[in-house]
Structure formats: structure tokens, C-alpha cells
Design a protein around this nucleic acid. Structure first.
Length: 196
DNA sequence: GTACTGATTTTCT
DNA sequence: GAAAATCAGTACC
């Protein structure tokens, strides 16, 4: 089943955990590219590292809109990063999708990434947007029945329920603020995470 | 295999 | 003018 706004309205940190094992699907002209989410990070609005921490501006306004929409920003002038707006009230924030295990459309991803190595296709927030061809024009797009979807489903042969004991939580990657908060989540032992 | 560095551009000060 | 939720390339072990 496709995740709906009900799912995204749960607290940001819980949503970051529960997105692990779900499938990110990009519907494209000639098919689909699909990856299984294996790494996420939570950015509650109340966190100094959140882009919305200092309040609403033109560039971050999606973070203050409905849960379940995509928030996309350009990192270091070179890489698009995909977030999902989550939570409500005091739990509002966004979840950064940091890494995918390639599932479908692998040859397309290989061409876009200029690599045949499966581990090089989507093992990082900038890599996965390149592999799935997601860019700034997707900012504010509602996830759901449209071009971008997230599934939690046994219709995928690789699907398995993620147990709490199989999730590692650590500090987030690459930050200069709030570096000590353990808000990064990834699947234990997975080959496709961005780093150990 | 790990460690370090430059690229690149948007955003806010 | 500086900072930034990254990546690819290079150097070295």
C-alpha cells in the first residue's frame, strides 16, 4: 500500500524509523526507478540543524506546510537532497532520505550515475536523487498517487518487516550544529548505507 | 582499504 | 562574504 498523509503525520523521529524498509518509487516516462529506504535522518523543526529552525522563509516554506510533501534543497551547490515533511504541532519536521538499496530500473540508475557498482548508485542523499532523477522541480510535490510514491508492501519480493532490533541509531552525518543528537537511523548490516 | 581536498551555488548575514 | 544535511578524485598505506 502507498503511504498516505496519515503515516506522515506521525512524529518526525518515529517516521524516520518507520520509513526504513519502505520503497521509494519514481514513476517515469518509460518506467520506474525504485529503491528500498535503508537510511534516514530526522530533523525536527525544534532542532538547530533543521532548515526551519529560525522560522519560515521563501526557500523553506514547504517545511511549514502539510505533512507528506517533498522538501528538496541543493546541498553545497551540487547535490539535491530529498526530505519528506512529517509530524504535526511540536513533532513537526522533516525526514532526510539518505540511502537506498536499488530495486528496479537499475540499468537506468547505472547510466545516470556513471557506475555499474550497485553500492555506488544510491548510497548517499545526493547520489539517490541523481539515480532516481529527482531535482528541485519536485520541491513541494505531495507524495502519494503522483510521480513520487512511498510504499510499504509485501507486493515487493524483497519486502520484510523491519524489527526494532535491526535498526541502528547514531549521530547524523555532515552537520556543524546539534552534532550530538542521535537522529540517524539505518538498517543493521545493510550494504547500501552511506557510511558506517 | 582510509584520509583529505576542491568544486559549486544558493541562501542568509 | 561566509556557510552549507555532499560528492568525486587524489594521495597514500
Amino acid at each position: 500500500m502507498i503511504l498516505t498523509s496519515k503515516f506522515y503525520q506521525q512524529g518526525t523521529i518515529t517516521a524516520a524509523r518507520n520509513l526504513l524498509g519502505c520503497y521509494l518509487v519514481h514513476i517515469e516516462r518509460n518506467g520506474k526507478t525504485i529503491g528500498r529506504i535503508v537510511e534516514t535522518e530526522a530533523y525536527p523543526l525544534t532542532d538547530p540543524a533543521s532548515h526551519g529552525f529560525k522560522g519560515e522563509t521563501l526557500s523553506n516554506r514547504v517545511l511549514f506546510g502539510p505533512a507528506g510533501h517533498a522538501y528538496i534543497y541543493l546541498s553545497y551547490g551540487t547535490n539535491f537532497c530529498l526530505n519528506v515533511v512529517t509530524g504535526r504541532g511540536r513533532t513537526r519536521g522533516a525526514v532526510l532520505i539518505r540511502a537506498l538499496e536499488p530495486i528496479e530500473g537499475i540499468s537506468v540508475m547505472q547510466r545516470r550515475r556513471g557506475s555499474r557498482e550497485l553500492r555506488e548508485l544510491a548510497s548517499g542523499p545526493g547520489k539517490l536523487t541523481q539515480a532516481l532523477a529527482i531535482n528541485g522541480t519536485y520541491n513541494a510535490l505531495p507524495l502519494g498517487e503522483g510521480r513520487l510514491q512511498v510504499w510499504r508492501s509485501d507486493s515487493f519480493s524483497s519486502y520484510q518487516e523491519v524489527k526494532r532490533s535491526e535498526i541502528i541509531h547514531t549521530t547524523r552525518v555532515g552537520l556543524t550544529k546539534a552534532v550530538d543528537r542521535p537522529l540517524r537511523f539505518y538498517l543493521k548490516g545493510n550494504r547500501y548505507i552511506s557510511r558506517k
